[in-house]
Write a protein that binds this DNA or RNA. Structure first.
Lengths: 210, 210
DNA sequence: TTGTTCCGAAACAATGTGTTCGGTTATAAA
DNA sequence: TTTATAACCGAACACATTGTTTCGGAACAA
């Protein structure tokens, strides 16, 4: 039993221990990738007793998440702060990933953690959903297709981000953002227009462009 | 040393053993999901000795792939067979996943195998790439943005497929296909038109829709 | 029938996980 | 400064998983 004591402890020893483990994790991620790291690796690198580790963290994943809490806040940028452009998160996100450098790239790429990707996916999905909802006629409820559109958009974005983090593509954040928008925006705007035209929340009017 | 002896053995015992293990795997996947299955689980369920298992397969993953070889062929449908409509694979794919029922859904969903998803991703990416290349002016080489577009499209498709396999969305294959096309096609067509208009392979003319 | 090949069982080393416990030491508070 | 306390270490433990090896016996193709 331990988990995350939300706030920093007053005892210097626990701060020391927690930081040592967290830092050991990021070092090891960069060296061998997240999945192959064992708790034994972690405590050796951190110079921390086994029992001590389990007094602070339940898991390898627990350490990872304790490191990612700050990041979650950073991801939650501009939910509807700029209501003029859709998907405002895209460019800042690519930029942020580039700045934070190797760690984030290691976590998002192929040798990274499924859990981190899933977490990011959830946060971005919520953001996209909110943005789209704000663009819909206020009266009607969310159209049935909303979640599918959100899934598409987030899927495309995360795929770009993952490939980019893997270094398989050489491009600037601006180029990545442009590619994302170029593929996704026309379809989304057309969707929004269709819903507005129908007035009602009846969403079945897709049909292939044919 | 064993791996996959491409063809069926003539020895009945070998066939018997391999099938038992393969079937045990699919049963266990449906019961507990792929990731948590251990080799020990497998040999207990299959009633097969430990040494026997390793005489036939190198790995848990080896068993999985031996089961999936047929599937790979099924995925490789209509690469350019119907040059009139883009992304012809989409609808048949959704339909196929629905027909094949629980096993494929279990493999693709959240509790499924990363390896399977990655494999499917690669195959579909190759298909999408070929389709788009066929639509480009024949003289010029592939524009630099091609791979990004492919990544977007495949990312959106796989995200839809995964969510659907997870049962989080109740929709028919036709509806899924329609959602996919509605989001993705307008942007892709606009891209293609842009490249055609520029005549040359210079692809930098994106720019956010602003 | 006969020689080959496969099979099951058991034991094995190696590695990892999560827990417990007694002794030591740093820390915060008095 | 003293002191009670909470955190630490390290070793040992039980347990699970993996992949290898070695048998005698049984099924198989010819």
């Amino acid at each position: 039993m331990s988990g995350n004591p939300r706030r920093e402890s007053s005892d210097r020893r626990v701060r020391r221990t927690r930081r040592a483990v967290q830092q050991a994790l990021t070092e090891l991620i960069l060296e061998k990738g997240y999945e192959t790291i064992s708790v034994t690796d972690l405590i050796n690198r951190a110079n921390v007793g086994r029992s001590t580790f389990y007094a602070h963290f339940t898991d390898k994943q627990d350490v990872l998440f304790s490191n990612l809490d700050e990041l979650s806040d950073l991801l939650r940028l501009s939910p509807a702060a700029t209501p003029d452009t859709l998907f405002a998160f895209s460019l800042p996100m690519f930029e942020h990933v580039q700045e934070r450098g190797r760690l984030l790239r290691a976590l998002l790429g192929r040798r990274g953690s499924t859990a981190v990707v899933a977490r990011g996916e959830r946060i971005i999905a919520a953001t996209v959903r909110d943005e789209l909802l704000a663009r819909l006629p206020p009266g009607s409820g969310p159209p049935a297709s909303l979640d599918l559109v959100v899934t598409c958009v987030v899927g495309a974005f995360m795929a770009l981000l993952r490939r980019w983090a893997d270094g398989e593509v050489a491009a600037t954040p601006t180029e990545m953002d442009a590619a994302f928008r170029a593929v996704v925006m026309p379809g989304v705007e057309r969707e929004l227009a269709a819903v507005h035209a129908l007035g009602d929340s009846s969403p079945a009017g897709y049909g292939p462009p044919r």
